[in-house]
Amino acid sequence: MNVDAESGVAEAIAGELQLMSPAVRSSRALVEQLLDPEFVEVGASGRRWDRRSMLSALPVMQGADEDGPQYVPTGMTGTVLAPGIVHLTFETVIDGRRARRSSIWRKSDEDAGWRMYYHQATPVPDA
């Protein structure tokens, strides 16, 4: 992987980790910086979210309270799909529930930086 690709993957991972942080999840302004204008998510519940609905709901969703359950990610890896497009995969645990996650980050221009374009979570059943 070249330096630009490594940098893109590192920036996407940093953004993903920020979105799991209660301080970011509870701040609409910070989340706006990390979600692409065309953001779409298919959550672990099967619900489809767009940017507007996610910005409204995220501050009260699980993981947004410093004193409550928080996301613990593992195995986060990234692949550059094309210039300015990074695909991340990983697992999370929150409050005893595991999910496999996949997200696509894109960089549209220098000012916006890397933003999450797509996210999907799939629950992992108990063994």
Score class of each variant (00 low, 15 high):
Ala112Trp: 06
Glu11Val: 14
Leu17Tyr: 10
Arg115Glu: 02
Asp95Gly: 02
Met61Val: 08
Gln33Asp: 13
Arg25Pro: 01
Leu88Ile: 06
Val42Gly: 05
Gly96Ile: 02
Thr92Met: 01
Ala23Glu: 06
Leu30Lys: 13
Thr74Phe: 08
Tyr71Trp: 13
Gly75Glu: 12
Gly68Val: 01
Trp105Tyr: 04
Ala121Cys: 02
Asp109Arg: 15
Tyr71Pro: 08
Thr79Pro: 05
Arg97Asp: 07
Ala64Met: 04
Gly96Ser: 02
Pro83Trp: 09
Gln120Arg: 07
Met54Ser: 04
Pro83His: 08
Asp109His: 15
Arg28Ala: 14
Ala29His: 09
Tyr71Ser: 14
Thr92Lys: 02
Ala10Asp: 14
Met61Asn: 11
Ser102Tyr: 00
Ala23Lys: 05
Ile13Val: 15
Val72Ile: 14
Pro83Val: 06
Glu41Lys: 10
Ile104Gln: 07
Ala64Lys: 05
Arg100Tyr: 05
Ala121Trp: 01
Leu19Cys: 10
His119Asp: 04
Tyr117Gln: 00
Ser26Glu: 07
Phe39Ile: 01
Gln120Ser: 10
Val80Lys: 02
Gly43Ile: 07
Pro73Trp: 04
Ile85Arg: 05
Leu81Ala: 14
Arg52Asn: 05
Ala64Ile: 03
Arg98Asp: 03
Ser53Phe: 15
Gln62His: 06
Pro69Gln: 12
Arg48Thr: 10
Ser103Ile: 10
Pro37Lys: 11
Gly78Glu: 14
Ser27Asp: 12
Glu91Asn: 11
Ala12Gln: 13
Gly43Ser: 13
Ser26Pro: 04
Trp105Asn: 00
Ser26Gly: 06
Pro59Gln: 00
Arg48Phe: 12
Pro69Lys: 12
Thr79Trp: 03
Gly75Lys: 10
Tyr117Val: 00
Asp36Arg: 12
Arg100Gly: 10
Val93Thr: 03
Ser45Gln: 04
Leu55Lys: 08
Asp109Asn: 15
His119Phe: 06
Met61Trp: 08
Arg98Ser: 09
Ser56Val: 12
Ala14Glu: 15
Gly68Trp: 00
Met54Asn: 02
Gly84Thr: 07
Pro22Asp: 08
Ile104Asp: 10
Tyr118Lys: 05
Glu110Asp: 07
Pro22Trp: 08
Leu34His: 11
Gly63Val: 07
Asp109Glu: 15
Val24Phe: 03
Pro69Leu: 12
Val86Leu: 02
Gly46Cys: 05
Val40Cys: 07
Ala12Leu: 12
Val42Trp: 03
Gly46Arg: 05
Met20Asn: 12
Ala99Asp: 09
Arg97His: 09
Ser21Tyr: 04
Glu11Ser: 15
Trp114Ala: 04
Arg98Ile: 06
Tyr117Cys: 00
Arg101Thr: 00
Asp67Pro: 02
Leu19His: 06
Leu19Met: 12
Gln70Arg: 13
Ala121Glu: 01
Arg25Phe: 02
Arg52Gln: 08
